[in-house]
Design a protein around this nucleic acid. Structure first.
Ligand SMILES: Nc1ncnc2c1ncn2[C@@H]1O[C@H](COP(=O)(O)OP(=O)(O)OP(=O)(O)O)[C@@H](O)[C@H]1O
Length: 719
DNA sequence: TGACACTATGTTTTT
DNA sequence: CATAGTGTCA
């Protein structure tokens, strides 16, 4: 069973080896963070290909397409280029791939994919059409309505039931929202557009209604592997079942303690249910952590052990040494940013590359202040998560022109591009789209229509001209983009004050689109797997080493030598929205677990003690409840200010940072700034008082130590 | 009636 | 900072 190319036994531990060498039959690898799940999948891909299995018959489903590409890449490096032909991607991208082929069977011979923003606009349009009065009904915003509809599909719940559970304050609106949901479905069917959920729903429909297709596909994809199975939803599990139940060669990999996507319908019970669907599934547990040092692992184990749900896995590492994670308390957000910036500079001066450092946060806006500071200090960074490049208004504007050109039925994009023209607002745009809809919409009919118009409508000729130019069949994708850019840039500079940034984005888009063969592919990719950075990188070409700023969700599955988790204060992380429902809070806890388990060697958890509120002004913030009580034992507490402005103890005391005094075992009161004499350690100055009767003390001879105050006896104080 | 500029406001997390 | 909602002017 040995291989001439890969030394499996050396590269894998026993449990991993066992999983990799499962040739057939169902299996589930369930394992904690950093235990090598992804590595196991990579080796299994290589191994299957090595035994002569056609790579295209391996279906590798991952969370992002980038993850799939990376895994195939690594497998190729282990074995050879055959691994690059593995059928890998996200559920959505695979669904799209299949539906483009078989869509005509379910009445979707062609379709466009709409993103979340578009969905919201459809809802807005429908509300307008129905003449519903938003204010009278107290309707929530469009995006919330879309959330509700989407959740009801992903969780297979009726709107009314779903509102009851997740949006009790909106319960009364169930009939209205139900009506909107129906209209929304109708709209999408009529206009041949699919949202993200439709890709999955329609794939499922196809597989159920056309057993021949299902059999063919099942035969084609003889080996199915799913990564991050804890974050799949019911629909996705059903698709796996439909594709896999014939050959049963299904391996799923996941970690229930890392499930962080329930807000979009993911259900980690899929893991529990897997053995029910495939009764003879082999279950393999990986418990050895290869990523983090002992002190980091201790903290993360402690974090997850407080979860309501008791997870059975217990992680250990053979790695020795390592430093205690630091808990850094800053006065406010700007001090937090300042401390991080300084720390990063000092790390790089120690020779650590920015590539090995990440700053992680709960919500994308948590990094705004830091971004400014980093820019000031010339530290290059890339931000992941949050507002995506493809969702920025100017990018959507530009793409809308191309979408209309490709598909004149695209009512939403018509609306968007019409309103960009001076003198054209919603009313006029409606007039035009209604006219187009009165027969089969086409660019020619648009052009005819414009000819009959006078006055402000004359401006529409600009659009007609643009479409004329685009119609040249010799134009490639990049030429099309360029033409639209020429047309749109003047409009954009007018519309946005901050146009310089946006111009850069358009240039970036121009580069990004170059490799695409067809416009359809370009637009589909833009919806399914757009460039992941939120903003066009500025001058990274010259500075290839850059820092990562990322939401925790986008950091899933990744790892860095040094990790900063910021805004670890209640209300931020956990988010204040999660405080009402226990399930939500538990998910935030797992999120903290995921964040901290990204660190290999050094972990810094930072939080500001005060925040600003638009009403209350300055407010006090509490340390995130997920890490509270770990001070001393699992984390080393420091004050940002002490490190920033030198360790002047009198300053520390006079700054009055809420450094409480504490009674010792014998009734003596000490506070930060006090000088004491320890029987073993000698003279020292108290830096700060921590929970559990502990204090951090700076000893002249021994440096900073954490000591137990109960052990301090009378007469040892020198004040 | 419709376009557009201005203001308030309130921010999860993503395929 | 981006969106929704309001107010004003043609
Ligand atoms: N048998 C092994 N020997 C040496 N290093 C390993 C081994 N298995 C995994 N690793 C290393 O441990 C780290 C974590 O592995 P991997 O990313 O596969 O874990 P994971 O279980 O997918 O983690 P997570 O659930 O946090 O995404 C990687 O750097 C990987 O190279």
């Amino acid at each position: 069973m040995s291989s001439p190319f890969i030394d499996y036994e050396k590269e894998l531990n026993e449990a991993q080896y066992e999983a990799v060498f499962i040739d057939e039959g169902p299996a589930m690898v369930i394992a904690g963070a950093g235990s090598g799940k992804t590595r196991t999948l990579v080796y299994r891909v290589a191994r299957l290909v090595e035994t002569g299995i056609d790579p295209e018959s391996i279906l590798l489903l991952t969370f992002t397409r980038k993850a799939a590409a990376e895994m195939m890449d690594r497998a190729s490096q282990l074995l050879d280029v055959r691994c690059r032909s593995v059928s890998g991607g996200t559920f959505h991208s695979i669904a799209n791939y299949i539906l483009r082929k078989y869509g005509d069977l379910i009445d979707y011979p062609n379709y466009s994919i709409i993103d979340r923003g578009d969905c919201g606009e459809v809802i807005g349009y429908i509300i307008g059409e129905l003449g519903i009065k938003r204010k009278e009904l107290k309707l929530p915003r469009n995006s919330t309505i879309i959330d509700i509809i989407s959740k009801s599909i992903n969780k297979s719940l009726e709107i009314a039931d779903l509102l009851e559970i997740y949006y009790p304050h909106l319960s009364d609106l169930a009939p209205v929202i139900g009506e909107l949901a129906l209209r929304y479905e109708k709209y999408k069917k009529e206009r041949k557009v699919m949202d993200y959920d439709d890709l999955l729903v329609n794939l499922k429909t196809l597989l159920i209604e056309f057993p021949g297709v299902r059999q063919f596909l099942s035969n084609k994809y003889r080996y199915i592997m799913v990564d991050e199975y804890q974050d799949t939803n019911r629909l996705q599990a059903e698709i796996v079942k439909l594709l896999g139940e014939d050959h049963r060669n299904v391996m799923v990999v996941g970690d229930d303690s890392q499930s962080i996507y329930s807000f979009r319908g993911a259900d980690f019970r899929n893991i529990m249910d897997f053995p029910g669907i495939f009764p003879d599934a082999k279950i393999i547990k990986l418990e050895e952590n290869f990523r983090s040092t002992q002190p980091i692992l201790k903290l993360t184990n402690a974090i997850i052990s407080r979860a309501r749900q008791k997870y059975t896995k217990c992680l250990f590492t053979k790695r020795k040494g390592g430093v205690l994670p630091k808990l850094v308390i800053a006065w406010n957000e700007s001090e937090q940013s300042e401390w991080i910036t300084k720390k990063i500079l000092s790390l790089t001066s120690e020779g650590i590359n920015l590539k090995n450092i990440a700053v992680l946060f709960r919500s994308s806006f948590h990094s705004f202040d830091l971004e400014v500071q980093l820019a000031k200090h010339g530290i290059p960074f890339a931000k992941y998560g949050g507002l995506k490049f493809a969702e920025a208004a100017h990018i959507k504007d530009l793409l809308a022109h191309l979408r209309v050109f490709l598909n004149p039925h695209d009512h939403l994009s018509w609306n968007r591009i019409l309103k960009l023209l001076p003198g054209i607002g919603q009313a006029t745009a409606n007039k035009v789209t209604n006219w187009l809809d009165s027969d089969i919409p086409s660019l020619d009919r648009f052009s005819e229509y414009v000819k009959t118009q006078k006055g402000t409508m004359k401006i529409l000729n600009e659009l007609v001209n643009l479409f004329d130019k685009l119609s040249d069949p010799s134009l490639e994708v990049k030429d099309l983009v360029e033409e639209v850019r020429k047309y749109y840039e003047p409009i954009m500079t007018n519309k946005f004050d901050d146009y310089p940034k946006r111009l850069r984005d358009l240039e970036y888009l121009q580069e990004w689109c170059a490799p695409f063969q067809s416009l359809e592919q370009f637009l589909t990719d833009m919806a399914l797997e757009p460039p992941e950075v939120s903003r066009a990188p500025s001058d990274f070409a010259e500075r290839p080493d850059f820092l990562t700023l990322s939401t925790i969700h986008s950091a899933k599955g990744l790892e860095w030598k040094v990790v900063f988790v910021i805004h670890a204060a209640d209300g931020y992380f956990p988010s204040r929205h999660s405080l009402y429902r226990e399930d939500d809070l538990e998910e935030e806890r797992r999120l903290m677990y995921v964040a901290c388990t990204r660190a290999k060697e050094q972990l810094f958890i930072v939080y500001p003690e005060t925040g600003k509120d638009s009403y209350y002004g300055q407010v006090t913030l509490e340390m995130s409840q997920f890490i509270r009580g770990f001070e001393g034992e699992f984390t080393d507490v420091v004050r940002a200010r002490n490190e920033l402005y030198g360790k002047s103890y009198s300053e520390t005391v006079s700054s009055g940072y809420g450094l409480e005094s504490l009674r010792t075992g014998r009734g003596f009161t000490i506070k930060a700034g006090d000088v004491l004499k320890h029987p073993d350690l000698g003279m020292g100055v108290v830096l700060e008082i921590m929970n559990h009767n502990k204090a951090r003390v700076f000893f002249k001879k021994r440096g900073i130590r954490t000591i137990d105050l109960k052990s301090v006896k009378d007469g040892q104080w020198v004040v």
